[in-house]
């Protein structure tokens, strides 16, 4: 079971990585926009209070907005993914519920659960972010397309980074 300190450290590192590295890696005219800060939110422990997810998502958004001139877009999107994260976890829960030591990842809950959970959280975040960013109705369809492709790319990124960290942890 991961400690609170490790979770908080990962949250901060994900924020800084997004602000200083992944923010610069937007490609294909925005059709692939990495949202790596979600790594710190997706991997929050499963059994926290719902209000903690909400505040963690909102604060993450404030951080990205301040560092990358998001003008509130990431805060709004972070709040949406934060409020929906416990609902997504409940929706995907095994029939007998989560075990006390269940960790977010493929180890205890399987790859299908891990991929679905990651993708859904990233998708709701991206849809709200890109829809708001569109700024006018005519650009919303394009924004939703960009949200879908960026969510796929970000989910793949999160899964790859998590897998790499798991391998390193196993070796140690």
């Amino acid at each position: 079971m991961e400690g609170t300190l490790q979770t908080a450290l990962r949250w901060v590192l994900a924020l800084l990585a997004q602000a200083w590295i992944f923010h610069h890696l937007v490609v294909l005219d925005g059709w692939v926009t990495p949202l790596f800060h979600l790594y710190g939110l997706v991997l929050l422990p499963l059994r926290m209070r719902p209000v903690t997810y909400l505040l963690a998502g909102g604060l993450m958004g404030v951080g990205v907005d301040l560092l990358n001139f998001g003008g509130g877009l990431f805060t709004a999107a972070g709040l949406v993914s934060g409020v929906l994260q416990p609902l997504i976890a409940r929706l995907l829960a095994p029939r007998e519920g989560y075990e006390a030591d269940a960790e977010v990842g493929p180890q205890t809950l399987g790859w299908l659960w891990w991929l679905t959970y990651t993708f859904l959280i990233v998708l709701v975040h991206a849809v709200w972010l890109f829809a708001l960013e569109s700024g006018r109705w005519g650009l919303v369809p394009k924004g939703l397309g960009q949200a879908a492709t960026s969510a796929l790319a970000t989910s793949a990124l999160i899964v790859i980074v998590r897998t790499l960290f798991m391998r390193n942890a196993r070796r140690r």
């Binding site: 003008g71 509130g72 709004a76």
Partner: peptide, 24 residues
Amino acid sequence: HVFLLFLVLQVLALTWVTRSHGHP
């Protein structure tokens, strides 16, 4: 209370968005 807090914070965030959009 979580949903109500979400609504309040979302309104604040959207205010921030509409105030800064295009002219940060």
